[in-house]
């Protein structure tokens, strides 16, 4: 029992000391040993989840095949409309003047896991201060917003993804020529909602959502996703919307950190 209380005391001592010392040296040393194991386990997890998903889906493969056949026909029809959509997209880009090619210095990093932070989760990447990554920098993948660096060590960094609890990003929802300002927030570390949208704003499912740049934390014009549906009722002052993000975490292996 004495050993238990001693270990409790050491833990509390560490916590108290971490208010003064950053423990960066110990963490760096430990991470250089543990990160490869963590990375390996993460990859195994990704591969295993794929196999498990496939095994579970076997009974529905026949139905899926039929559904896919119908989808192919539907897609062929949609292809005909593609040309006009492309032209419309080009016009929208010109109107927004924000989604064009960005000229920023970026650092390529691999995702090596997720870090449980109690309420929220952080994405762990394998590049840190040594590569020029610092707190506050924005993380993207092909012009799509992933999140923001909230902690950086020498060899790795922690990113608060947009789906995490505590993540708040000012955005604008593009509906035709109209733009509505709102805020996206992570819910339950898995869903994203768009809040603070004025009730009179006209918004439909499928509308484009990009960062507004308000507040100066996130640059404007980063693609966030599309409106998935409206969650609030007409009687509420502000609209709440469901966001369908532009990316899926499970399939993400690499990200870019904007260091410029």
């Amino acid at each position: 029992m004495k050993r238990y209380y001693t270990l409790l005391f050491i833990s509390i001592l560490f916590m108290t000391a971490s208010r003064v010392f950053s423990f960066d040296g110990i963490r760096s040393l430990g991470q250089s040993v543990l990160s490869p194991i963590s990375f390996g386990l993460y990859r195994i997890g990704l591969a295993t989840s794929g196999v498990v998903d496939f095994a579970v889906s076997i009974p529905s493969v026949y139905q899926d095949n039929n559904a896919l056949g119908e989808k192919v026909i539907s897609l062929e029809e949609q292809l005909i409309d593609l040309q006009s959509t492309k032209e419309e997209n080009s016009i929208l880009r010109q109107q927004l003047n924000v989604l064009g090619d960005r000229d920023e210095k970026t650092v390529l990093a691999s995702v090596i896991g997720l870090n449980d932070q109690g309420r929220s989760v952080l994405v762990v990447i394998n590049e840190g201060k040594r590569s020029g990554i610092n707190i506050g920098q924005i993380v993207v993948n092909g012009g799509r917003l992933i999140g923001r660096v909230v902690e950086a060590n020498a060899n790795n960094a922690f990113v608060l993804p947009i789906f995490a609890v505590g993540s708040k990003v000012p955005v604008q929802v593009i509906h035709g020529e109209q733009k509505a300002i709102g805020l996206i927030e992570g819910e339950f570390n898995s869903k994203i909602v768009i809040s603070d949208i004025l009730q009179e704003s006209e918004i439909n499912a499928g509308d484009l959502v990009i960062t507004s740049g308000e507040g100066g934390v996130y640059p404007s014009g980063l693609y966030v996703g599309r409106v998935g549906g409206i969650l609030s009722s007409d009687s509420e002052i502000f609209k709440r919307l469901r966001l369908v993000p532009s990316w899926e975490f499970a399939g993400m292996h690499t990200v870019f950190v904007i260091v410029d």
Binding site: L7, I10, M15, R27, Q31, G113, N115, Q117, V124
Partner: peptide, 12 residues
């Protein structure tokens, strides 16, 4: 070591 939390929190 692997987290960005307060050092010692998970041990406690």
């Amino acid at each position: 070591i692997l987290s960005a939390d307060v050092f010692g929190l998970r041990s406690l």
